[in-house]
Design a protein around this nucleic acid. Structure first.
Ligand SMILES: [Mn+2]
Ligand SMILES: [Mn+2]
Ligand SMILES: [Mn+2]
Ligand SMILES: [Mn+2]
Lengths: 217, 217
DNA sequence: AATATTTTTTAGGCTAATCTAAATTTTTAT
DNA sequence: ATAAAAATTTAGATTAGCCTAAAAAATATT
């Protein structure tokens, strides 16, 4: 059993390590958690003692298999709750993250299975992020940030970065939501801004924005 | 802002005081919270400093108006979540209390208003307990424990005590749920057991059980 | 009214999660 | 290869919520 704080640290480590594929440094973790390095070190020791991460002094931490599964369960809950808030309660997609940050710590496997069923076993959350199944498996579709593609590209929006509420409001306004077709009509070499076709609407977007739109196909 | 622990203490004080109508003693509170008297005293001082309760040393505590409203908001959330779990997720009524104990601490007024709307503004929870509105108002219908009535009584089940999961399972089995008509066919003076008609079924119930069925009309 | 019992409070400690400041180790720059 | 800089860890406090043991106050009993 992890405390709420331990769950949050572990989730942050999982995300910062790109799903367990690289080591996470103490300062990175402290910054992500809005705490100080000394606090991060303390928590690293605790999670390491419980074998959710492996830790070599001064060289950062890696998530263990056990840690990955645990982190994915929290992420599963977060994304199911976000889906519930948008699909059932009518929240906008820029309003759900903070509430889901609380709901993800509710501890009841029965609840989360029932919720999953109630939502119709969704594969992705409102921002297009995949929802792990109850074993921690994720159906990862290969995704690319839009800014790395060039004129003429035609594909589908797979997901958007869900961190900034204002960005989400803007993306909503221009119709950029997961599942929508998108085409790059032109790209400006100087600043990587581009003109795109989203849902038959022509829009100019900056690199700032295109970096946060993930496409597939 | 109250911590989760403060919310739980305040709710316990509210319930033990019968909605603010009598003083609550330190030992009572400690027992209800499964802590020791010293811990209860500590918390009493904190809640008193924040003016959710008034406190006279050695003579127990009373809930203030501010404290009542706060407690009722937690109770509102608890009962709305219980309703959600039963009505939408298909939980049995004996499975919801523990989960609702966690969910009642989620802090988002938007969430609770949306949830209320989603549920169709229910007036009572699955156990028949009234759900306070967002101002803390409760529509209290006068209720009596069934064991205090005699042969020939005809009325409706208003609520059942929701504390014991095994009792709830039993009540479910005999069809004793809020809204159901109930008639006392006979009562045994010796032990106050009775034969009742619930939903056209004849059932013998002990005083143990009839005490926990609240009727109205 | 004095004493015994019960209840409540206080004193002093413990753990989790945080901090600041100091010490240590690694990394970078000369 | 040293010295300076940066990153990390350790040491020592603090706060919330809990505990046990002791002191104090209220209540009950003789
Ligand atoms: Mn989110
Ligand atoms: Mn999301
Ligand atoms: Mn309940
Ligand atoms: Mn209830």
């Amino acid at each position: 059993m992890l405390s709420l704080t331990e769950e949050n640290y572990l989730k942050a480590i999982y995300h910062l390590s790109d799903g367990g594929s690289k080591a996470v440094l103490t300062n990175e973790l402290a910054e992500a958690m809005n705490t100080k390095a000394a606090s991060a070190t303390d928590m690293i020791k605790k999670l390491s003692a419980k074998e959710f991460i492996s830790y070599e002094k001064y060289y950062g931490v890696n998530v263990t298999h056990k840690g990955k599964v645990e982190a994915l369960m929290v992420i599963r809950k977060h994304r199911l709750w976000e889906t519930f808030l948008v699909d059932k309660l009518g929240f906008n997609w820029d309003e759900v993250h903070e509430v889901a940050e609380q709901l993800e710590h509710i501890n009841s496997s029965r609840l989360i299975e029932k919720l999953d069923e109630f939502l119709g076993y969704p594969k992705v959350d409102p921002h297009g992020d995949p929802i792990p199944d109850n074993k921690g498996k994720i159906k990862a579709q290969p995704q690319l940030p839009l800014d790395q593609l060039k004129k003429g590209y035609l594909g589908k929006i797979a997901a958007v970065k869900d961190s900034d509420s204002n960005l989400l409001k803007y993306l909503d306004k221009i119709g950029a939501k997961p599942g929508t077709k998108i085409k790059i009509l032109g790209k400006e070499d100087y600043d990587d801004s581009m003109e795109v076709l989203i849902d038959d609407h022509r829009v100019f977007i900056s690199k700032e924005v295109s970096q946060n739109i993930l496409v597939s196909e």
